[in-house]
């Protein structure tokens, strides 16, 4: 054999040997214990780092899942598929993850809710309007129609309808809750997708004011509560559904004068979804 080849073999073999040895030593000295399952879990996660799980990102979620701080089904974006994968990795039962979606609990759009006799000037977002005397709608509790939730949704699942109210597209909604946080009025809530009846109002106003400011407000008459066998209770002038005891069949929907409590499918039926406006934020306000 050629001496050159021997030299080459010796050089590379020797270098390989030396560095392998060095790495082996370093591996011993500098080893940091990390559960190998963390990496595996991280791999099956969607990796969008949306924070819907309440953690600082997918990797953080993985760490928490492996440490048992959070359930495998805790990733709302990944759904059951991811939950199963994680459960497989961890060797535990996944639990069933029900589809959770956002629900907008206000029906007082541009048509139903009365407006103040003022012209508002400033950024057209809910959070900023809320700062200035609570926006231009008379109701202090209802939707401001600025579309903060639409902006917040990374999945394109919320749109404003032509009545200025947000509607949720169930198929796109992942139940991450970004819109819930974005809403300064707390009118968006997360619910299992199969819930059909809601009280579409958050107003605690007294009956007179409530009637005055909005056609579809809960005026706090309490009829639904009285018939519901505890399925609905009254809290400070507002009907609130107790889901564990709730039975839609007991609710006298026709007795609710303002239809504040009604079926979801009827709640927004007459309005069309408007196309999401890209430039809505910077569009100049109307002239004076």
């Amino acid at each position: 054999m050629d001496i050159n080849i021997l030299i080459a073999i010796a050089t590379m073999g020797g270098l390989g040997f030396i560095f392998a040895g060095a790495l082996a030593i370093a591996d011993k000295k500098l080893y940091v214990e990390e559960d190998p399952r963390i990496a595996k879990v991280n791999e099956v996660l969607p990796g969008v780092n949306c924070g819907a799980c309440g953690k600082a990102g997918c990797y953080d979620f993985a760490v928490n899942v492996v440490e048992g701080e959070i359930a495998p089904s805790g990733c709302p974006v990944g759904g059951q598929e991811v939950a199963n994968d994680i459960a497989n990795i961890l060797g535990i039962d996944a639990g069933t993850s029900t589809k959770i979606v956002a629900r907008v609990l206000c029906r007082g759009g541009n048509i139903e809710a009365a407006r103040k006799m003022v012209e508002y000037r400033g950024p057209q977002t809910c959070s900023t309007m809320d700062l200035v005397s609570g926006g231009t709608k008379m109701c202090q509790y209802g939707c401001l129609g600025g579309g903060d939730c639409v902006e917040a949704c990374t999945f394109n699942a919320i749109h404003l309808n032509d009545n200025g109210l947000p509607v949720v597209i169930d198929d796109l909604c992942t139940g991450c809750g970004m819109c819930v946080t974005a809403c300064p009025r707390d009118i968006i809530e997360l619910h299992p997708a199969d819930r059909e009846v809601f009280v579409f109002c958050k107003s605690h106003d007294d009956p007179k004011t409530a009637k005055e400011v909005c056609d579809v407000a809960c005026i706090g008459c309490g009829i639904c509560a009285r018939k519901s066998d505890g399925g609905v209770i009254m809290e400070d002038g507002l009907a609130v559904i107790q889901w564990d005891k709730f039975d839609p069949d007991k609710i006298p929907f026709d007795k609710c004068k303002t239809s504040a409590i009604c079926y979801l499918r009827e709640a927004f039926a007459e309005y069309q979804v408007e196309e999401k406006k890209e430039a809505s934020r910077i569009a100049p306000e109307q002239n004076n």
């Binding site: 400033g122 959070s127 900023t128």
Partner: peptide, 12 residues
Amino acid sequence: IPLVQWLRLGKQ
């Protein structure tokens, strides 16, 4: 720019 409004929101 409505600086105060944004600042107030951010502060809150």
